[in-house]
């Protein structure tokens, strides 16, 4: 069975590929958010600039 650029299996598995992709993206956002809250107490710009609250 050859897999072409757009095989029928891609359509068939679209929902679970998309679902898994969204879950992983949400996980990244969650870990980033948690890091911001833990390190800087919610200050996003401080978290990105790298300065730590004293």
């Amino acid at each position: 069975m050859s897999i072409g650029r757009q095989h029928e299996i891609h359509k068939r598995r679209f929902s679970r590929n998309m679902g898994l992709g969204l879950v992983l993206a949400a996980f990244v956002v969650l870990v980033f958010g948690l890091t911001v809250v833990k390190v800087t107490d919610g200050n996003v710009s401080q978290a990105i600039s790298g300065s730590v609250a004293k």
């Binding site: 069975m1 299996i9 068939r12 929902s15 679970r16 998309m18 679902g19 898994l20």
Partner: peptide, 16 residues
């Protein structure tokens, strides 16, 4: 499971 077209698991099945 690649050829199992009728009973293909969707994202919702894993969620269930």
């Amino acid at each position: 499971s690649a050829d199992n077209i009728v009973n293909e698991a969707q994202f919702g099945d894993y969620f269930a």
